[in-house]
Design a protein around this nucleic acid. Structure first.
Lengths: 152, 152
DNA sequence: TAATACTTGACTAAATCACTTGGTTATGTG
DNA sequence: CACATAACCAAGTGATTTAGTCAAGTATTA
């Protein structure tokens, strides 16, 4: 199993996008600042998210990214998968050749854990996260800080 | 979250130990061969398992390792924890300073996933694994191959 | 047509993984 | 007592991955 900042960044960034999903597309630079992620790194992640159809982009002045699907159609599992992180835990990736071309002693255990984790992450969408009070509260704080810095 | 071969090796090796837990202690070399793990690498893992009180050892000829606890007292979570792998997924390790000294947008999500995985791994012991038919079957195959090679 | 914004590819320092090497120390057996 | 055995220990190492940076684009639109 591999769940690192890459996957967390992607989920945070998409949630930020969902929370600022008005008429206008969202600048990646703003997301980067609010979520404290390097812009160029975020660009790489969004290029993957776009390839997987989770976001759409528009170029030029006033351009940016927006969700390509409804928030309740984007599961956390989808996001993590899109940025190349695998939820798989087994060595053989399900192929049952974990040890000398045979299933290792604990093959079934890891498969079971796989199932648990993916069904958990499949069952939660961006919409679910938005519904939770904490998220809105945290997002407001982030927006406040953002406005404080950028007001002229 | 970090679950790699280290944790899988440790669980496989301890399960092997549990399955060969007769009067005599078990040679690490035999475990290494049956489970197809480098001996010296396994030694490193067992040194950690011993420090955490999961196994006891006896030196000299006829020495080896045995379980220090009953199989139903050793959970998978304990084993993984003992070899330094962390089940924690959050960046802040629960400290809620994941982003600019505040909780990040998805802090609660990762904490929840943490809970899911650890309660799953806490709820399964070596004894549980032994009870499953597949494990015994696989172990018998491993023993058969082992004996084939070592009979004189 | 200049400014804005997305796109791509190559590169990199640091960390981690999965070991290997090369020993030392304790213990039971002949 | 010598010696084989097997646990114990420290350090190093090549490959891979992470989390980025840097540089040079291309497309869009005010």
């Amino acid at each position: 199993m591999k769940l690192t900042t890459k996957g967390r960044y992607a989920v945070n960034a998409l949630l930020d996008l969902a929370l600022h999903n008005n008429k206008k597309p969202v600048h990646l630079a703003d997301v980067a600042e609010r979520q404290n992620i390097s812009l160029t790194y975020l660009e790489q992640l969004f290029s993957k998210l776009k390839r997987h159809g989770l976001v759409s982009s528009s170029r030029g002045p006033g351009g940016g990214y927006r969700l390509a699907l409804e928030a309740d159609e984007i599961s956390i599992a989808k996001i993590i998968y899109s940025v190349d992180e695998t939820i798989d835990i087994t060595r053989c990736h399900g192929k049952q050749n974990c040890q000398k071309d045979q299933r290792c002693l604990t093959h079934d255990l890891w498969m079971e854990l796989n199932m648990h984790v993916s069904s958990f992450l499949n069952g939660i969408t961006l919409f679910d996260l938005i519904q939770r009070n904490n998220v809105k509260h945290v997002a407001q704080k982030q927006d406040f800080a953002f406005v404080q810095i950028h007001k002229h």
